[in-house]
Design a binder for these strands. Structure first.
Lengths: 208, 208
DNA sequence: AGCCGGATCAGCCAAACGGATGAGAGACCA
DNA sequence: TGGTCTCTCATCCGTTTGGCTGATCCGGCT
């Protein structure tokens, strides 16, 4: 059986070499290329058609990880994409999965976890770090995300088309507080504008 | 039979006296008070409880006509409110009717039309100038308002949460044009923010 | 030929919004 | 008592919107 081919995408050289060394200890895994940016990753995927792409989400300048995932999926829906990143924000997880990531690992994952994730990915299994899994699970279980009561209340009014000022008046809080809540809501919903938040909220199961 | 009592609301003295003179020619109509602002109108309605309120929508400073109508309805749902204004904008018509106006007349209406409207209003009949009626009819017949194909297309994308820049790219037009279309859409929907437009559009019949 | 509605674009300006950061008060839990 | 969460507020700053005005082009309709 041929080894599983892997493409590493991370803007930090040290991370790439560390991963390469780590994966190199496994006879069934072979790192065939490394990319330092989303653009480069796109080229290398076309060239090597690896079985798995292990990618960092935060990538200095240029295309970000999420966008890279989206593009990769368009180029070749075959290879599995594994996110390998430092932070576990709700928004990133949701968006990565949404963009088509096969798994989501945190950089503090144990070597064994990483191996398992790569092997699982090629077999179509989705592997993720426990904290990530738990967040995602909550997302699925509670479609309103992990919104606090206050946030949910705000989101409800948001869909009425109110401005920040109006929201503040309606809830007897300052505009500053409204903005804070909104920022949290956007992060949890994985959007970045109120327009998208409203669209998401309203479409999300008959909310009206 | 007692004459029908009327309250005139218009910030222009000349309009008020003109109307008073006009209505005065009819033995069954009696102007019992005049207000120059929404606030004043509220007070006078409480004081005189007129059968009909004939009101201009544009009213210099302070409360605008739409808001005044809304308040009046809260105070006393009894009297009929007749809008008597210069311009027939889609947004104003929709909002006035929505706020609870009984009829909608343009200032170039013939005297006979005005008399008929006032008499009709007290009897619960809704009278409006022909051009107004036609606009309103279109609104009802076509829930998408009077949106042109291009505007409808834009509104659709708007509900996806796109920014002006993105809308422009998607439709191959400049951001300036996007803004122009949006301004028209807002006017036709009777809203003033994209958030409200999105909310309206999405709720409007299962649009998704 | 002349007019009108629809679509396109520009420039200007004020208001609204979003991002980043810091911070304090109260509730709850270990 | 020391974390953690939620809700609250503030300031700064750059971007996005919305309002307004004016203009061009095209295709019908008259």
């Amino acid at each position: 059986m041929n080894p599983t081919t892997v493409l590493l995408v991370d803007d930090h050289l040290v991370v790439r070499s560390g991963l390469r060394a780590l994966l190199g200890t496994q006879p069934d895994l072979a790192v065939v290329a490394e990319a330092a940016s989303g653009e480069e990753a796109l080229d290398l995927v076309r060239e090597h058609a690896p079985d798995v792409v292990v990618m960092d989400l935060a990538m200095g300048a240029g295309m970000d990880g999420i966008e890279a995932i989206r593009r990769l999926r368009q180029v070749n829906t075959r290879q599995a994409i594994l996110v390998f990143t430092t932070y576990d924000s709700d928004a990133d997880i949701v968006r990565a999965v949404d963009a088509g990531a096969m798994g989501y690992l945190l950089k503090d994952a144990a070597p064994g976890e990483i191996f398992a994730a790569v092997r699982g990915a090629v077999q179509g299994r989705s592997v993720m770090s426990p904290p990530v899994a738990s967040r995602l699970f909550q997302q699925l279980r509670n479609p309103d995300g992990i919104l606090t009561p206050r946030e949910a209340e705000l989101l409800g009014l948001l869909t009425e088309g109110l401005s920040n000022r109006e929201l503040g008046r309606r809830l007897f809080i300052s505009e500053a507080t409204v903005k804070t809540h909104l920022a949290h809501i956007y992060a949890k919903l994985g959007v970045e504008t109120r327009a998208a938040a409203i669209a998401t909220a309203i479409r999300r199961e008959g909310m009206r």
